[in-house]
Design a protein around this nucleic acid. Sequence first.
DNA 1: GCGACAG
DNA 2: ATCTTGTCGC
Length: 234
Amino acid sequence: MKVPDLNPAGYREAVLIQNRLRKKLILQTSFDKNNVNIIAGCDNSIIKEKNLMLAGVILFKFNEAKELVIIEKTFSKGKINFPYIPGLLSFREIPTLLSAFKKLKNKPDLIFADGQGYAHPRRMGLASHLGIILNTPTIGVAKSRYIGVFKEPGKRKGSVTDLVDKDEIIGKVFRNRANVKPVFISPGHLVGMNDIINLVKMVSGKFRIPVPTRIAHIETGKFRMELLNNVKKK
DNA sequence: GCGACAG
DNA sequence: ATCTTGTCGC
């Protein structure tokens, strides 16, 4: 993945890349969830003092009780070579994510990424960008709003409202657990706006964050602790 | 010009 | 994202 330099020219280049990718973005797909066998969740972590970006990918399958079971985990680390700029998050986090995805033995049918997908100023958030690069369906699961306006969803688990930007529905605000802050779901690549909530409900679990990204976050945190402990031993 | 701003 | 103690509530 091309990561532009951090200067005004690089910034413009990153925006151009996103605008070009947007033309490749495919949303209007009726997604057949019966073809979903392997599900992935991914997340990043940072060791600031070492300038390290970490990434983890967790693969799941459904057992007979329709529960998610972990079948594979991969992790990766790499130098941080792009700052945090709202709108350009993918250039910071995707390179390390890709090296973790390359280590997988199995190929996921659907990826849940921690961040926005279509709910982005250029409709090209982390989840969309990742899906296009991997040519795999993705869904963005963000813990907070980036852009858009919405009505507060009902307090019950499963309540949904639209996330709207300039009169366009760009995602959904979804309460994954009763009386807890909602999450912000938006299509990534190869998944339509009408399918994302049903797909998230398949992996909702018991907590605020749906299972794939929640477990990916926890496991990547463990990976981070292991790295810090190894440094300590030396 | 001012405020907002995924991780 | 990371840093970071106690504390309120189911």
